[in-house]
Design a protein around this nucleic acid. Sequence first.
DNA 1: GTCTATATTCCGATAGAC
DNA 2: GTCTATCGGAATATAGAC
Lengths: 202, 202
Amino acid sequence: MESPKPSTEELILEAAQAVFLEKGLAGARMQEIADRAGINKALLHYYFRSKEKLSELIITRAVGALLPRVLAVLETDQDLFAKIRQVAGEYVTFVSRNSFMPLFIINEVNRNPQFFLKASVQHEKARIDTFRRQVEEAVAQGRIRPISSAQLLMNLMSLVMFPFLGKPIFQMALGLSDADFKREMESRRTEVAEFVIRAIQA
Amino acid sequence: MESPKPSTEELILEAAQAVFLEKGLAGARMQEIADRAGINKALLHYYFRSKEKLSELIITRAVGALLPRVLAVLETDQDLFAKIRQVAGEYVTFVSRNSFMPLFIINEVNRNPQFFLKASVQHEKARIDTFRRQVEEAVAQGRIRPISSAQLLMNLMSLVMFPFLGKPIFQMALGLSDADFKREMESRRTEVAEFVIRAIQA
DNA sequence: GTCTATATTCCGATAGAC
DNA sequence: GTCTATCGGAATATAGAC
């Protein structure tokens, strides 16, 4: 056993994350968070003064959980193609267990863009630049076809992230059950990388 | 001149669309819609009984404006590569003038997926199937590399749609001003198609 | 059709007992 | 720390005059 009975604070944070991610910031209700945590509203405000403060915590947690996971791979000293293969795998694995997170983050980032200009995220820029230089080098050496590093990065991120955001659309459009969709995502874990590599290899 | 003075109803719908798309369903305020339409709340309820009913209208309008635009290309009798080239162009052009729409639709579709199972969208499935058969034929004839039509469709849609959703992230990560970003999107209008085509051509 | 004024509901936040 | 009860404001919705 490894359940050292979660503290009330942890219960709240877990409940808050679930509700904020499902309903969005504006749609989330303090009452529902309290209910899911098994406490009442008053206690919620005792721990975290306001909905505003609580939501800031959750946003920071969510961004901190998702972005570094995708970006960490970018600055390792691996071969370019190996990196591309690993990013897809990492991301798909993580999102399969946190299905609401991509949409939540995309929303918050769009509604409050300057939140990104500071703090932890700025630090990630170094990792990105490492990757971009690697791409530009490969292009200069003729190892891959000419492509701007910005465009390649956008392509890779798009292929990895979007299918989870558009899940209901794709399920409808392609006639996929939940199980079918899961299978398609599984196969994307490798197919995305191969798709990108074929597009860029000289 | 071609401004036959918009009716109050049109003014409301236009204002409602703007507010809902910017703030999201839960975040939108009837007061703000009334203000932007140049009327008051009471009149809003006179035309559309409730926020609920008004929002349903806006959702239907938005979905009807965006999805057919992307899908229309899929069932023409064009060459496969030509279709791919055209989808990217169509979409980028439209979204440039309706920048909040993709995020809004993605949100609504995720919060209320069964909204899609009925009505107009079901009809689009024929177009999609036309495209899928065309892909499968090309694979069978060895004209393109083996790829499932589902994966190819996801890839194309992802590359076309996601950069607009992730705009703030990309601007931060790549150090792009608004003008820079616009330029990158312009060049994607052709680059996305070439990227996809290189990835699949035999 | 359009307005002002008001009712009603909902929700975040606080007071105060235990 | 945790609860019950309640306040105060905000947002949706309606009443009723013009």
